[in-house]
Design a protein around this nucleic acid. Sequence first.
RNA 1: GCCGCUGUAGCUCAGUCGGUAGAGCGCUUCCUUGGUAAGGAAGAGGUUCACGGGUUCGAUUCCCGUCAGCGGCUCCA
Length: 690
Amino acid sequence: MPIITLPDGTELTYDAPVTALDVAGDIGARLAQQALGCKVDGVLSDLSTELAGDCSLSIVTPNNREGEPDPDALYLLRHSCAHVMAEAIQRVFEGVELVYGPPVDQGFYYDMAVPADRPVSSEDFEAIEKEMAAIIKEDRPFCRYEVAGAEGIGKLEDEGNKYKLDNAQRALEADSEASLSFYATGEPGKNWEDLCRGPHVPSTGRIGGFKVMSVASSYWHGDETSDNLTRIYGVAFYKKKELNRHLARLEEARKRDHRVIGRNMRLFHIDETVGQGLILWTPRGSVIRQELQDFIGEELRKQGYSQVFTPHIGKLDLYRTSGHFPYYRDSQYPPIIEPDALSALAEEGCSCSELANRLESGELNGYLLKPMNCPHHIKIFDSEPRSYKDLPVRLAEFGTVYRWEQSGEISGMTRVRGFTQDDAHLFCTEEQVAEEIMGCLSIVKTIFTTLGMEDYRVRVGLRDVDSTKYTGDASNWDKAEEACRAAASALDVPFSEEPGEAAFYGPKIDFVVKDVIGREWQLGTVQVDYNLPERFDLSYIGSDNKPHRPVMIHRAPFGSMERFVGVLIEHFAGSFPAWLSPEQVRVLPISEKSNDYAGEVHSALLGAGVRATLDESDERIQAKIKVGAEEKVPYLLIVGPRDAEKREVSVRARGIQDNLGAMPLDEFVEKMAQESSDRGATSVRSFFES
RNA sequence: GCCGCUGUAGCUCAGUCGGUAGAGCGCUUCCUUGGUAAGGAAGAGGUUCACGGGUUCGAUUCCCGUCAGCGGCUCCA
C-alpha cells in the first residue's frame, strides 16, 4: 500500500505498486504527457520506475515554473541524446567501441574508441545528425532491464568491449550485490542497447532539438598513458527553439570573449615571434593593469604590507631547496646554464641526457626562470634576524613567474607561460594564522565588490584524512583548516569544502570564476604553508628567547594580472568603469570651428589627470558619436560654438541613447577626476540622473 | 604533449574543381564645416595566400613536416 507524497505535501495512497507515470496520470493527463522522468525520494529516476513502498515523488517536466528548461529534464534529455548519438555513430562508422557517455553542464559527450584509420572529423557531423534525426523520428522507447552482476559481465565479455566490461566491473566493485542495468533504445535484444545506469526520458521522440558540437580527444580514465579515445560533444533540448536560443547565446558569448575584445580594443598582443603564451601589454591594456595594481597596492598599504622587488631568475639550488626543482621540472622552462660551464660541457662532448642528470644531481648548477616568488621572499625574510615582535612580516610584490604550460593548454590571457602574480607572503606565528587569513580574504572581498564581480565560487581545499602525503603535524593542520573554514564563512559567500584538494604543504582557499564559454578559472588563492619554513629552516626569536618556526601564508587575490584582466574584460564585455577605462573621455568638436575650444577642454581634462582624447577628424558629429560609442568610451563630450560661448560641455554617457545635457567645463573636470579617483563610487552621470 | 579543425590585406571574411587574388571595415589624401549612433570622392595596402619541403610544365589550391590559433583531454605551484 504505497503512500506517495507529492512536492506540495499531498499524499496519494495506492493498493498496489504503481509506476511514476501512473501517478503522473492520476495527477493530470497533461502532466503524464509532458513528463520526462521523476525524482523518487530525491533520486532522479525513469518514469517507468515502479513505486512499491512509501516515498516522495516529483515529476520532472521540460520546464520549471519560470518557463526555463528544468536542469533535471535537461540531464535526462541529454543523457538520452548521448545514446541516440552513439547509436547513430555506430551506424555511420564501422568498428566503433563505446566507452562512456554522460551529460555535462553544456550538453553531453560520448567517449569512444574509433579505428585509427578512420578518425571522426567535424565533416562527419552532418551524417551523424541525419541518423540521429531518423532515430528520434522513430520515437523508440528507452527500455531498462537489469541482469545479475555475473550474468551482465558474461554478456559484456561475449560482446568483447573491454571498456564497457571495465565500467561494469567498476560498478560491481563499488557494490558487489548490485545488478547491472542496460537500456535498449526500443526492444531489448532487438534494438540498439547500452550498459547504462540511467535514467532516461521515455522515448527518443522527446528530443526536440539537438546538435553535434565538436570532437576532441580524451584518455581512458583520464590517464594519459592509457588509451586515446575520441570524445564527441553534443547538446540537446526539449524544443528546437531552445536549441536555437542556446546557439545564439554561444554566438553572443563569443563576442564577449577577451581574445576578441582584447584585439579589437587593442588591450594586449600575443606575438608568435615573442613566444606562445607570452603577453605583450599594449598601452591601453597597461592602463587597466596599472589601475588595478594601484588599487591593490593601496589596500596592501592599509593592511601593513611591505613592497619588495626581486629578480626574474634565481639559482637552481634555491629551487632545489624549495622543492620546485626537480619536482615541477616538467612545467618549467629549462635551466639557464652559465657560459663557462656550458663551454666546458661542450668540450667534453656531454650528451643531453648526461646534462639532465647532472642538473638533477646538483653536480651542475645554473639558473631558473622563477616559477614562484616565494623563495625570493623567503630570502628577504631570512636576511635579518626576526623577533616575534616583527611578525607578521608581509612581503608583497607584483612578481612575474614563468611556467612551461603544455602547448595545447595555452589560451589567450587566461592560460599563459609568463604571468605576474599580485603575490605576497606572510610570515607569522601559529597564533596569527587565523587573523592573517581573514585579512587576506577581506582584500579579495574588497576587490570583487568594487569590480561588481559577484559570481564567484570559493573552494576550501582540505587534506585527505587518510593520506600521508602532507607535511606538518596534524594539530597544526587542524588549526589551519579550521581557520580557513572560519575565514571562508565570514566572507558571506557560498563555499565548498573539498577534502583532498589541499596543497601538500597546507590547506588553501581558492576563488573560482567562469568565463563566457562556461570554463572555470581559478583566480585568487590563499594558502597556508608549513613546508617552506621547514625547508629553508626559517626562524624567529620568541618571547621565551628561543627560536621558533614561523608559518607562511601565500596569497594572491587576483591570481595573476593576465588571467584576472582576461576575466575582467569578459565580465565588463569591454565596457570598463571609467576608473579602469584606458580612454575615459573623448572630446568631439562639432566642426573645425570648435577645435580651439575642444583643445582647451582636452587640456583641462589632461591637466586634472583624466585620460582624455580629442577627435579632430573632419567627420560629422553623428559619425564621431557612433565610433565613440562603439569603442566603449565612458564619456563623450560634444562641444560646439554654443558650448564654447558658455564654457560648457555637452555630455554623453556610455550605454545611454540620449545626451545627458550640458555642464560647466570646470564642473565636469572636477567630477570626472573624482569618479576616477574614488573608483566609480560617484559618477558624472549620476549627477545628471539626480 | 594528445585528438579534431583552422591559418588569404591592420580587422572580418570571400575565392581559386592546380594557371601567380577580391569585398567590407580601417588607413591616407581631397571635398564637405555639419549640434547627438557612419556625408562624398580618390588612393595606398598582400615581399602572392603562416613557414619549410615534396608532387607538377605550373601550387595559395594536392601531399608531408614545422609553427601558431580554436575546441576538448591531460596537467596545474
